[in-house]
């Protein structure tokens, strides 16, 4: 070891810097969270001994279990809608001529580079009781009086879809880009109909993209606490809101930490599924 430091001081310095940063600001803090989740709540020092599993037990308290299930439902709906919009979108996008494609992708990432709070706020302008959508609908004679759109679960889902859609489309687009036309033609030549080709060829080949998209949408959709704050009327609609409240307002760190570990486990599960789907494709040699 000493030898290699003398031989390549630059290399050693780089590795120490990077490892130091990651160990200090990623690994250590995460260990802290794991530690905090098994400790006891303390009003003065946030956490104290003795060790126990109360926080995890509290997660199964019907009150919080409801929030978790509601959050999972909102995130799942968001992901499903993103997938339903994004899948055909990515397919269509991958078949546009190359020159135009670059422009279209540019247009897709412009919103991503735009402040997400401001974009969420813009939705509020549209969805408010006397907002644009209501006035448009009533001037078309479709409704007699304003419909309550803002401060509903629907508004929160719309907000989440709006913010997260590009994260579903981009990984899907990249798998559709790799989907070779001759594979589809081969399937057709072998007598498969449109539906059979879709089910047996297109879906399995694009599955890694689907899972990557799901991963990039589902997890943030549970954590983005500012969306329900702005569009949902400040209710605890997402796990993110619960974690934020437990840490910043209720000062119940063990519980907040346990909730965030549940989120991390969800992430690990999704990453595992994603790897598995990629490996399966690799083994089948497609």
């Amino acid at each position: 070891m000493m030898q290699s430091i003398k031989q390549q001081p630059f290399r050693a310095a780089v590795l120490v810097l990077v490892w130091g940063w990651l160990l200090f600001l990623v690994l250590a803090p995460n260990m802290l969270v794991v530690g905090a989740s098994v400790m006891t709540r303390d009003p003065a020092t946030f956490i104290s001994l003795p060790l126990n599993l109360d926080a995890y037990r509290q997660l199964f308290n019907p009150l919080y279990l409801d929030v978790f299930l509601a959050s999972l439902y909102m995130a799942a709906m968001t992901t499903l809608i993103c997938l339903l919009i994004g899948y055909p979108f990515a397919w269509a996008l991958s078949r546009v001529e190359k020159r135009r494609q670059m422009l279209l992708i540019f247009l897709l990432i412009v919103p991503f580079w735009t402040n997400s709070l401001v974009r969420t706020y813009a939705l509020k302008l549209i969805l408010a009781t006397n907002g644009l959508l209501n006035s448009a609908l009533s001037s078309l004679g479709l409704i007699d009086q304003p419909v309550q759109l803002l401060y509903t679960e629907g508004a929160v889902i719309v907000g989440l879809v709006y913010l997260l859609l590009p994260f579903m489309i981009l990984p899907l687009y990249s798998v559709f880009e790799d989907l070779r036309q001759d594979v589809l033609l081969a399937s057709h030549d072998l007598g498969a109909g449109r539906f059979a080709t879709f089910k047996n060829v297109v879906v399995p080949l694009t599955l890694p993209g689907v899972l990557a998209g799901v991963m990039l949408v589902l997890l943030p959709a549970m954590g983005l606490f500012f969306v329900p704050d702005i569009l949902g009327g400040s209710r605890n609609l997402l796990v993110g809101n619960v974690i934020k409240n437990q840490f910043l307002d209720a000062r119940n760190w063990p519980f907040g930490a346990a909730a965030s570990i549940v989120l991390t486990l969800c992430m690990a599960l999704l990453m595992f599924a994603h790897r598995l789907s990629k490996r399966r494709l690799g083994e089948e040699g497609v």
Partner: peptide, 10 residues
Amino acid sequence: MSPEIVLAIS
């Protein structure tokens, strides 16, 4: 990949 909120509290 990890949710921002997890990084934030840690």
